[in-house]
Lab assay of single mutants.
Amino acid sequence: MEVRTIKVFTTVDNINLHTQVVDMSMTYGQQFGPTYLDGADVTKIKPHNSHEGKTFYVLPNDDTLRVEAFEYYHTTDPSFLGRYMSALNHTKKWKYPQVNGLTSIKWADNNCYLATALLTLQQIELKFNPPALQDAYYRARAGEAANFCALILAYCNKTVGELGDVRETMSYLFQHANLDSCKRVLNVVCKTCGQQQTTLKGVEAVMYMGTLSYEQFKKGVQIPCTCGKQATKYLVQQESPFVMMSAPPAQYELKHGTFTCASEYTGNYQCGHYKHITSKETLYCIDGALLTKSSEYKGPITDVFYKENSYTTTIK
């Protein structure tokens, strides 16, 4: 009895394709271990004539594949690729409408935090270190965002349907971005203890939790000093293409032309909904596939993004 075979390709990165001759009487799992086709788990399936010449994702289970996976995804987590594939199996079914010149995501599976993050990423200057993220990001900007969303979920250790947080998501993504040249110098002034300067680099240099107003941050924000008295913390120097200011959701007025974009969060910790506000020729609110415009805006804002380049204080 002759062994019926077909020729397929296996890959971990969709760049390096490895030619395989597979036995049609055995499952993919018996031949390769966990195997995925377009995100779908085909591990328990036997090869079919229609699979001839198709590319299958496999887990990096030998040295060659491990090197290829690390170079593309910059992670050695053995569960990463499987999590990416199972997320992709959902995100490829989502709709990605162009809204006001940006790629958004039609609401499904509690994905409003991903839509808000995706919209924000198209408006701030950011370059990702893992080629996987950078490639998928370019495709997302062009309207094909399924891979990018699935990668975000995998890097953030999230599953489809789980509630997510924009600030946490951005923080994970910033860790995989090139923020080497970003720098922030802060000064804390206390009447009792004097003053202390701190220099922050990388992710810490672009994120701040405690106030939404970048102007206020430049002037000074009140913080408790270690001595128990009130101290003032203010920005001395900022070198970065953008800054992200966050605070627990509270009524906040966004003035046209003073910011790049913002995240609105309605609801409580267990259950809520994100919308995205962007400042173009007027203010726009993007909620999944829905767009509304207004000249002014007041609502429960939790993150505001500002364009920056270089700032030095005039406070002496």
Rank of each mutant, 00 (worst) to 15 (best):
V3I: 12
V3P: 14
R4C: 14
R4I: 10
R4E: 14
T5L: 12
I6Q: 13
I6T: 11
K7V: 07
K7F: 10
V8L: 11
V8S: 03
F9E: 07
F9K: 12
T10K: 12
T11L: 01
V12K: 09
V12D: 06
V12Y: 09
D13K: 05
N14I: 12
N14R: 13
N14L: 07
I15M: 05
N16C: 09
N16E: 05
L17Q: 10
H18A: 08
H18F: 01
H18I: 10
H18P: 11
Q20K: 14
V21K: 13
V21F: 14
V21N: 13
V21Q: 12
S25P: 08
S25D: 14
S25H: 09
M26V: 09
T27K: 07
Y28I: 05
Y28W: 08
G29S: 09
Q31N: 13
Q31K: 11
G33T: 04
G33L: 06
P34D: 12
T35N: 07
T35G: 09
T35I: 15
Y36Q: 08
D38A: 11
D38R: 09
G39M: 09
G39I: 06
G39T: 13
T43Y: 10
T43E: 10
T43F: 09
P47V: 07
N49M: 09
S50H: 10
S50I: 14
S50E: 14
S50A: 13
E52G: 11
E52T: 10
E52R: 10
G53A: 12
G53K: 12
G53P: 04
K54E: 14
T55G: 08
L59P: 01
P60D: 13
D62N: 13
R66Y: 09
E68Y: 06
E68W: 00
E68T: 06
A69F: 15
A69R: 10
F70I: 04
F70C: 10
E71T: 10
E71N: 13
H74P: 01
T75V: 12
T75N: 11
T75Y: 04
T76I: 11
T76R: 11
D77S: 08
S79G: 13
S79L: 09
F80A: 04
R83W: 01
Y84H: 01
S86W: 01
S86A: 15
S86T: 12
A87W: 15
L88I: 06
L88D: 04
N89R: 13
N89H: 11
T91E: 02
K92H: 03
K92D: 05
K93H: 14
K93T: 13
K93V: 07
W94S: 02
K95V: 15
K95A: 07
Y96E: 05
Y96F: 14
P97Y: 09
N100E: 14
G101C: 07
G101H: 01
L102V: 07
T103P: 02
S104V: 06
I105P: 00
W107H: 07
D109E: 10
N110K: 06
N110P: 01
N111R: 00
C112T: 05
L114S: 02
L114D: 02
A115R: 05
A115H: 04
A115G: 04
T116S: 09
T116P: 08
A117K: 04
L118S: 07
L118P: 04
L119H: 14
L119C: 06
L119P: 04
L119A: 00
T120V: 09
T120M: 11
L121G: 01
Q122W: 05
Q122P: 01
Q123S: 08
I124M: 04
E125N: 10
L126E: 03
L126W: 08
F128M: 07
P130A: 09
P131A: 04
A132E: 05
L133I: 06
L133E: 01
L133T: 02
D135A: 08
A136H: 07
Y137V: 04
Y137P: 07
Y137Q: 04
Y138K: 13
Y138Q: 15
R139L: 11
R141P: 04
A142V: 13
G143T: 03
G143K: 05
E144S: 12
A146H: 07
A146E: 10
N147L: 04
N147I: 08
N147Q: 12
N147W: 08
F148V: 05
F148Y: 04
C149A: 06
A150I: 01
A150E: 06
L151Q: 01
L151W: 03
A154P: 00
A154T: 06
Y155M: 00
Y155H: 07
N157M: 08
N157L: 02
N157V: 05
K158C: 02
K158V: 01
K158N: 05
T159W: 05
V160D: 01
V160C: 08
V160P: 07
V160R: 02
G161L: 03
G161W: 07
G161S: 01
D165C: 15
V166H: 10
V166I: 05
R167L: 00
R167Q: 11
R167M: 00
E168P: 07
M170G: 04
M170N: 02
M170E: 05
S171G: 10
Y172L: 14
F174I: 03
F174L: 09
F174V: 03
Q175H: 12
H176W: 15
A177H: 03
A177P: 00
N178Y: 02
N178W: 03
N178Q: 12
L179E: 05
L179D: 04
D180F: 08
S181W: 11
C182R: 09
C182A: 09
R184L: 03
R184F: 00
L186R: 05
N187W: 05
V188G: 00
V188Y: 05
V189G: 06
C190L: 05
K191C: 02
T192N: 12
C193Q: 00
C193S: 04
G194Y: 04
Q195A: 13
Q196G: 08
Q196N: 12
Q196V: 09
Q197P: 06
Q197R: 12
T199F: 11
T199K: 10
L200F: 11
K201L: 11
G202A: 06
G202S: 03
V203L: 10
V203G: 07
E204G: 12
A205Y: 02
A205K: 00
V206K: 06
V206Q: 03
M209T: 15
G210S: 08
G210V: 00
G210P: 00
L212M: 03
L212E: 02
L212A: 06
S213Q: 03
S213E: 05
S213L: 03
Y214F: 06
Y214V: 05
E215L: 03
F217C: 01
K218A: 03
K218Q: 03
K218D: 00
G220R: 02
Q222A: 06
I223H: 13
P224G: 08
C225P: 01
C225I: 01
C225K: 03
T226V: 14
C227W: 05
Q230W: 12
Q230C: 03
A231T: 02
A231Y: 07
T232A: 03
Y234M: 09
Y234D: 00
V236G: 01
E239K: 09
S240E: 01
S240T: 04
P241D: 09
P241C: 04
F242N: 01
V243I: 03
V243T: 02
M244A: 00
M245A: 08
M245W: 01
S246C: 03
A247Q: 10
A247D: 02
P248W: 14
A250P: 02
Q251P: 15
Q251N: 14
Y252V: 10
E253Y: 06
K255M: 09
G257N: 07
T258E: 14
T258I: 10
F259D: 04
F259P: 01
T260N: 00
T260E: 08
C261R: 01
A262S: 04
S263R: 02
S263K: 00
S263I: 15
E264N: 00
Y265N: 12
N268M: 15
N268Q: 15
N268S: 15
Y269W: 12
Y269S: 15
Q270H: 08
Q270G: 12
G272H: 00
I277N: 00
I277R: 03
T278N: 10
S279W: 10
S279T: 07
S279F: 03
K280A: 14
E281N: 09
T282R: 09
L283S: 01
L283G: 00
Y284N: 04
C285Y: 01
C285P: 02
G288H: 06
L290K: 14
L290V: 15
T292V: 08
T292Q: 14
K293C: 11
S295Q: 15
E296D: 12
E296A: 13
Y297D: 03
K298L: 12
K298Y: 14
P300R: 10
T302Q: 03
D303N: 12
D303A: 06
D303R: 01
D303I: 02
D303M: 01
V304W: 00
V304K: 06
V304E: 04
F305Y: 03
Y306S: 01
Y306W: 05
K307A: 14
K307I: 08
N309C: 13
Y311R: 05
T313L: 14
T313C: 14
T314V: 10
I315T: 15
K316R: 15
K316M: 15
K316G: 15
